[in-house]
């Protein structure tokens, strides 16, 4: 399952990911990481049965954990298959089919939301 981990400024310098991997033995697979001087964000895949252990290990060190289980939803009536979304998605959720329809692979979605603003027709929303 996909999770998003946020690190506030004061714990950024700590080797938290290394610590929690050693502690839980989980195969945490990082798919995206953004870290600057004030904030850190990591998107990762984790085994479902180890989620609770990972979450506890992270939150006890001051990080916050969100499960990414609300992938993007498309309003088929609004979508015109232009493909504006294709190039802004960091994880390639959108692609063109043979007939130039825009296909979606929502499994990949990390809920960053950039496609919502890009879509000229307001056809994309994050699920609830």
């Amino acid at each position: 399952m996909k999770i998003r981990i946020n690190f506030p400024t004061d714990i950024l310098v700590n080797p938290i990911i290394a610590e929690i991997i050693l502690e839980t033995g989980a195969l945490l697979n990082i798919s995206q990481a953004q870290i600057d001087s004030i904030h850190g964000k990591i998107i990762a895949d984790v085994p479902e049965d180890q989620f609770n252990a990972i979450k506890n290990a992270l939150t006890s060190r001051g990080a916050t954990v969100n499960v990414l289980d609300r992938p993007i939803i498309r309003d088929e009536d609004e979508c015109v298959d232009c493909g504006a979304c294709v190039s802004v998605c960091p994880v390639k959720v959108f692609s063109f089919g043979e007939d130039w329809s825009v296909n979606m692979d929502v499994e990949k979605c990390i809920q960053c939301g950039i496609c919502l603003a890009m879509c000229p027709h307001g056809a994309l929303v994050l699920g609830r």
Partner: peptide, 20 residues
């Protein structure tokens, strides 16, 4: 779907719908 700029592969998006 992509072109090269400065040796980097850059994804492309149409804004108009070729399907329509």
């Amino acid at each position: 779907g992509s072109i090269e700029i400065d040796g980097k592969e850059v994804p492309t998006s149409p804004l108009s719908s070729f399907k329509i």
